[in-house]
Amino acid sequence: MPWSPEAESQRNNVTTNLIWAKLSKVPKELWTKKGLSFLASLIGGPLCMDGATSMKRRLDFAKVCVTIPLDFEFPSSIKLKIHGKVVFIDMEYPWKPPSCSRCTPAAGQNSQNVATPSFSDPAGSDVLSMINVAVDNRESPSSARTSKTPSHDL
């Protein structure tokens, strides 16, 4: 929204932000609209994916746009269990919004959204029912530690 006195007066009402996330090491079973939307929902509220991702022109990583709360912690990976096999989806954020203690909600609120999206794409729906999820704030799979977010059966 362009700056205006009205926009300035609404600044303290902002509770979310939009970011792009780059997802690497995505298993081929999740390269569907439903699968990528599911992964995006583990970060925040899924909005869209870039053209190369949606048209599957680039398969080494996916780019998704999500809404996040102002106190988002930017996890570096998602741990999934698919058909009994543990996989890690690496996450990068090309741009992280600056943090402001005046605007950010009080600490202690849960900053990670975990939701199951509902989409009409039937491809991959059987895969999603076989996934356990844990969101980790760690740098690599080799530095495994227990996540603050419990695993979820989907």
Results as ranks from 00 to 15, higher is better:
residue 141 P to Q: 03
residue 58 R to I: 08
residue 38 F to G: 01
residue 125 S to G: 00
residue 140 S to P: 00
residue 35 G to W: 01
residue 70 L to C: 10
residue 26 V to M: 05
residue 87 V to R: 13
residue 102 R to K: 15
residue 116 T to K: 11
residue 16 T to A: 02
residue 128 L to P: 03
residue 26 V to Y: 04
residue 105 P to G: 08
residue 147 S to M: 07
residue 12 N to P: 00
residue 124 G to Q: 09
residue 68 I to R: 05
residue 48 C to E: 12
residue 141 P to R: 03
residue 19 I to F: 09
residue 117 P to Q: 03
residue 47 L to E: 12
residue 152 H to R: 11
residue 84 G to W: 08
residue 67 T to N: 11
residue 90 D to F: 11
residue 81 K to F: 04
residue 31 W to N: 00
residue 35 G to M: 06
residue 145 R to K: 13
residue 30 L to V: 06
residue 120 S to N: 11
residue 34 K to A: 15
residue 103 C to T: 04
residue 130 M to K: 13
residue 89 I to N: 03
residue 132 N to T: 07
residue 2 P to Q: 04
residue 138 R to S: 11
residue 127 V to K: 01
residue 41 S to H: 06
residue 65 C to F: 05
residue 53 T to A: 06
residue 99 S to I: 14
residue 150 P to L: 15
residue 82 I to M: 11
residue 133 V to M: 01
residue 117 P to K: 01
residue 20 W to S: 12
residue 36 L to T: 08
residue 78 I to F: 09
residue 42 L to V: 00
residue 1 M to Y: 05
residue 109 Q to A: 10
residue 137 N to W: 05
residue 6 E to M: 01
residue 30 L to A: 02
residue 134 A to E: 14
residue 86 V to K: 15
residue 22 K to G: 04
residue 9 S to Y: 00
residue 108 G to C: 05
residue 56 K to I: 02
residue 55 M to L: 12
residue 113 N to M: 12
residue 27 P to E: 01
residue 5 P to N: 06
residue 85 K to D: 08
residue 19 I to C: 09
residue 29 E to K: 08
residue 51 G to V: 06
residue 97 P to D: 10
residue 52 A to W: 00
residue 150 P to Q: 13
residue 53 T to W: 02
residue 33 K to H: 13
residue 17 N to Q: 13
residue 114 V to N: 04
residue 66 V to G: 04
residue 5 P to R: 06
residue 109 Q to F: 10
residue 94 P to C: 07
residue 42 L to H: 05
residue 142 S to A: 13
residue 53 T to D: 07
residue 76 S to L: 10
residue 63 K to I: 14
residue 103 C to F: 10
residue 92 E to C: 03
residue 48 C to A: 15
residue 95 W to N: 08
residue 34 K to T: 13
residue 11 R to V: 14
residue 23 L to S: 05
residue 52 A to E: 13
residue 68 I to N: 03
residue 20 W to R: 12
residue 150 P to K: 13
residue 132 N to W: 07
residue 96 K to S: 07
residue 132 N to D: 07
residue 79 K to P: 00
residue 21 A to V: 15
residue 90 D to E: 09
residue 116 T to L: 14
residue 74 F to V: 09
residue 71 D to H: 15
residue 39 L to C: 04
residue 40 A to R: 06
residue 133 V to W: 01
residue 11 R to A: 12
residue 50 D to V: 02
